[in-house]
Design a protein around this nucleic acid. Structure first.
Lengths: 250, 250
DNA sequence: TAAATAGTGTCTGTAAGACAGTATACT
DNA sequence: AGTATACTGTCTTACAGACACTATTTA
């Protein structure tokens, strides 16, 4: 942004002199963390320990702490600290939920994120403040009463995931680094809740060139071995030319 | 959210007792307002009057005022007050921009919105605080230095618009309530920057049943008159089954 | 050799894109 | 009648979906 002019520096100082008097809104980040447990997509819910709403259920989240977080994405990752261990998890901002009544402490805004991880990157032990992390399947989680507007966040996150499944490589982030095409297809199917045609699935995924086959590496089993692949780039989610399920995209 | 328990009410009171000491982040909303001026898509930029960054360019925006705004969307619309007059404008949240360094006044978050309006709904006179609204074409606007991280917001908004053009009826919000199919096609073409095949365009739009023809209403001109249509619902943007431009969607 | 799953070839229907044609106004 | 633009019909090509087929391992 560069250097402030003299006038602008004076504006900032004057602003911050008056600011302490204000009732500024609260700012937080909440996360819909999705993983796969025995081929079933699940979301991480917290049974809250000490503090507000003790004993009730919510998404993992935290208030922004300006001295710790350089963006709300940092706040989101901090809310997962001790629960998820991974180098480059997939994290995407969903949207910002705001308003006067969503938090009993006052006017607040929360930046909602979705995060996808393989089950192996999760560590679900009770934290020192008494929070209990649990993995819950989508149906059950959507039926549970959650604190704040977390039910709305959750269903927004699941909608986003389901629609992205149709045209992106996103579900690969639910698997370990190396996987086979049949494994990947099962992930797509479990999220969509419907079977996909094998040749069509393979053609679309392979034509997109999002995956690279690992020379000579095969998944052994009591049958024909399967080629092992990994994402060409774990940095960004790639998008297909068209939908996996032609008619499913309303 | 229902009634608070005794314990929870005590937590809230205790929280707010300590809260005044804190340096809570700033919260604002900024808007990428898009309209069409002589078939050219343009964005609303503000040459700032009195206050911070006087004389520099920014997107229209405002700090959240908890006594005035019930959500950040209200803040966004308030930032447009006096500039845009319309019953049901199209407003969509883009994403939240946050961080310690994006605003010289301190740690801040801004919820970014995109808004689409017909040119007739805009009133671009200088406001009493000296702000000067100007309409600027996309290319020029992206090349101008904007305050805060507004350049990033702007390019994010334009990207979102361009991608939604491919599969939604969004561009119709840039036209007056009543319009013809050739008029609508010109809007799509001006945003995409490329020509579309007429029969294909008509088929996709009409098959989607997003538009209703107005019985007997025709646009007169020096040639064959064109059927006048309007959006079936101005409430929500409808999505096509597939892309208008098969190959354009990377 | 049987079972199980990985992976491929082929046919068919649908829909997009190109282009040429027809329709209806004004001058 | 000529011109300009609205609107439609038809052909071709591409690709998704269905399904049957082949391939390769273990038991």
């Amino acid at each position: 942004m560069g250097q402030l002019s003299f006038d602008d520096a004076r504006e900032v100082a004057e602003f911050n002199r008056q600011r302490k008097e204000w009732a500024t809104p609260l700012l937080s980040a909440d996360v819909t963390l999705v993983t796969l447990e025995e081929d079933v997509p699940k979301v991480l819910l917290i049974k809250r320990g000490k503090g507000l709403f003790r004993g009730k259920w919510s998404l993992p989240g935290a208030l922004v702490r300006s001295e710790l977080d350089s963006t709300t994405a940092d706040t989101a990752l901090r809310a997962l600290a001790g629960k998820a261990h991974v180098r480059a998890p997939y994290v995407e901002q969903l949207r910002c939920f705001s308003g006067a009544s969503r938090d009993p402490r006052g006017w607040s805004a929360s930046d909602a994120f979705i995060c996808l991880l393989p089950r192996g990157a999760l560590d679900l032990k009770k934290s020192e403040n008494g929070d209990e992390p649990h993995l819950v399947d989508f149906e059950t989680a959507m039926g549970m009463p959650l604190c704040f507007d977390h039910s709305e966040m959750l269903s927004y996150g699941i909608d986003r995931l389901r629609s992205k499944v149709n045209y992106s490589s996103l579900p690969a982030y639910l698997l370990p680094e190396k996987f086979t095409l049949p494994e990947l297809q099962r992930v797509y199917e479990s999220i969509l809740g419907s079977k996909l045609d094998k040749p069509t699935f393979r053609k679309k995924i392979l034509d997109s060139e999002l995956l690279v086959p690992l020379e000579g590496e095969m998944r052994q089993g009591p049958n024909r071995p399967a080629q092992i692949y990994q994402l060409r780039s774990r940095e960004d989610v790639q998008v297909f030319r068209s939908n996996l399920l032609g008619a499913s995209f309303k």
